[in-house]
Nucleic acid binder design. Structure first.
Lengths: 238, 238
DNA sequence: GGCAATTTGTACGTATGTATA
DNA sequence: GTATACATACGTACAAATTGC
């Protein structure tokens, strides 16, 4: 599939392993982590690599280390959930439907407002990008290849970007990471692809026509449908 | 003033210095950073300390390092703005009024929705905490000591927490950090302290009475006033 | 106050990868 | 292409600081 070789150095690999394990709960908040020396032995690497990994995880708020006390896991409320790695570890480990619901509540706050800002202040060339994404979605709806996902993602990120607000546009990684996981659950009824693409197109039109309130409401509707779907799934399983 | 001694180890100090310098634009995206060896000399520390600092900054998305190429500054769009340190560096360096406006646009998306979620799903004991913050604000309005700020902050964070959604409640550090800076600009007309406390109390009442729509609208009103104030300041200076 | 355990900080050596001549 | 130089990547070893007993 021409997948690009993971270009991670040693400390980043260890960071990934430990980060995943911490988020998955393999190291509790009280028990703490093994000592540096033990980690060296466990992974068969030097202290330098372990220490760099520890520093990276500390920078993401997952752990803290003090002399004599060792390496301790921080409370989950201190974890930086808006770090792409942390979010990825979280979504790949925990019972995902509940996290997805929280995630959709978040999107319901962010994206309608971003759409409104894009309609009000967005630069024309940034709005063009939204249009391109819509066209790609329409094309993907007729095309059996699985390019719908990419186009969908491009649509949402281009709106965040068009908001002209760096706090919104930075959430593109947050949205993307979580969207990649949510795909697994929202087993799309392939039949409505055209209808879905049309819903997206309406939002684009509202932004293009500089109708903030309309863009906000249409986006609210779009995400609320996804949220309702997840809530139904939870009810089925629960 | 009994200020607690900064308990930062060496690599964290260097991280702070370099992080601030990068965000302030002292190292551009093209020019890159000095080599490890040069940084060692500049700060009079070992390479290990420098490397750990580099890893922490890389974990926050500010830089990346590759052999032969050296340490390069990442594009600002890749910086993790929701990292408390990064946000602090950003707010302390750049022309803050514009950043504050973007920040308030963000709060306008988040906090009304959080208030609605708190009203709909919030646990009673979490809502009690909002009430306590309101009482503290009322007390501070009559008290000349500067405890209003702390109470204000407690109010907003307690609502985020009461939302029961980890993505919202994690933004408490984001809100707090930025609120600390915004205080410098919003030179409060001390006379309306009571009126302000009353606006906050209304939101609490709506949440307590389980009125999501009302809580959402009141919060929207509260933050929109602050945003209007900042926009006026920008117009004055511009 | 002394002792032991553990992280913190330093020093230096080798390996690897990557631009440039 | 090949070689070379240079910067980071990785490893080992040891001294210092901190903290619990």
């Amino acid at each position: 599939m021409g997948r690009i070789i993971e270009n991670l150095n040693l400390s980043e690999q260890v960071t990934n392993e430990l980060g995943r394990a911490i988020v998955a709960g393999e190291y509790s908040c009280e028990s703490g982590l093994p000592t540096e020396a033990q980690l060296c032995e466990e992974y068969g690497i030097s202290r330098t690599a372990v220490r760099e990994a520890v520093k990276m995880l500390a920078a993401k708020g997952l752990i803290s280390s003090r002399p004599r006390q060792g390496i301790s896991v921080e409370q989950p409320s201190n974890w930086n959930l808006y770090d792409t790695s942390v979010l990825k570890w979280l979504l790949s480990s925990s019972p995902s439907l509940y996290v997805l619901k929280e995630f959709l509540q978040m999107r319901l706050a962010i994206e309608p407002e971003a759409a409104a800002l894009a309609a009000e202040f967005g630069r024309d060339e940034d709005i063009d990008q939204i249009g391109k994404a819509v066209e790609a979605m329409k094309a993907a709806a007729n095309d059996p290849s699985g390019s719908m996902h990419d186009a969908d993602l491009a649509f949402h990120t281009s709106i965040l970007f068009a908001s002209g607000n760096r706090f919104f546009s930075h959430l593109r990684d947050f949205i993307s990471t979580a969207l990649n996981v949510s795909i697994q659950h929202t087993t799309p009824a392939k039949a409505n692809d055209l209808a879905v693409a049309d819903d997206h197109a309406k939002i684009y039109t509202a932004i293009r026509n500089r109708q903030p309130e309309r863009a906000r409401n249409l986006m609210k509707y779009l995400i609320d449908e996804a949220k309702t779907f997840i809530e139904l799934e939870i009810k089925k399983q629960g």
